[in-house]
Structure formats: structure tokens, C-alpha cells
Amino acid sequence: MSNPHTNYFQLFALPERFNIDIQSLEVNYRKIQSASHPDRFVSASTAEKLHSMQLATTANEGYNTLKNPATRAKYLLEQRGINAISDTNTAMPADFLVQQMEWREHLEEAKVAKDLPTLESLVIQLQAEAKSIQTELADLLDTKKNDIAATEATRKLIFIDKVCADARQAIEQLE
């Protein structure tokens, strides 16, 4: 139900950039939910209930998109007319591809060996990697305005998030 015309940055009264004040995002998200949540419209007219549902849903979607650095970068690029994950956007530096394959291999081996400590250290390693890409993204998107390099960094971040999610799932299944 999220309307493609809603600009999430505007919705949360934030400047349209990668480096945002997460605290302001949280505070404004809560304010919007306080005003729009379906709990506020239990005995309201059908029309008001519908609008409440739409806005509360959009606010949740927008909050999630902006809170997570990878989806925030991807969304920011979308606003600049670039689809970071389109089929035509596949260029990836060779060293990152090798690195990515190594992570995957590590993950599969640890999964088979039911090796919890290795899985946990892999998650920590991936999180550190993600942090450094986020710093790079802030520079590329907000200062240098280098959208081509930013697209590549965003794709890296999405890759890392995926491996990290898979590693977490593997940890969960082992417990």
C-alpha cells in the first residue's frame, strides 16, 4: 500500500542524504505513528480508517527503509534515478567477488561442521566490513556526489547484508 509518490525523507522531515540523524528519524516516526495509527481511529469513519491504515503502513515502510543503511542508500539512489539492483547494473570489482565467494564458502563449511564460533566470528567480520562501506557511502553520496561509485558500494553492502542474514539464520538453526 506504500505510495510510490511519498518521499520518505520528506515524510520524516529529514534532509535527503545518506548521513541522517537516526534519533530524529525515530522521534519523527513515533510522532507520525501517534497521529496516524489505526488505534487512533477505531470508531472513526471508513474513510478515516482507510487513510490511517495507509499512512501508518507507509510510515512503517519508510522507517524501515531509512533505518537500514543498505536500503537507505538504495532508496537515495532511486530518488536520483538509479536502480542499484537492476539486472543491467551488475558490474562488480573482481576482488570483491572473490571476497564474497570466500565468505560464502566459510559459511557453508561452518554450517556443515555445525561450527557456531566460526559463524559468530563471520557475523562480526561482516558487520565490520559493512561499517566501513557505510563510511565510504556517506562520502560518495553526500560529499562527492559520485553516484556511479556509490551504486557499486551499495551493491556491496546489499551483498554483505545477505551473507550476514544467512549466517544468522544458520546460527539460529544450530541452536
Binding site: 496516524s36 472513526a44 469513519s45 474513510a47 478515516e48 487513510h51 490511517s52 499512512l55
Partner: peptide
Amino acid sequence: AFAAARMNASV
């Protein structure tokens, strides 16, 4: 239309 206007105003 009134409901939509109210929602925007309240936000």
C-alpha cells in the same frame, strides 16, 4: 476528501 485532509493536517 475531508478524512484525507485531516490525516495530513494531523501528521
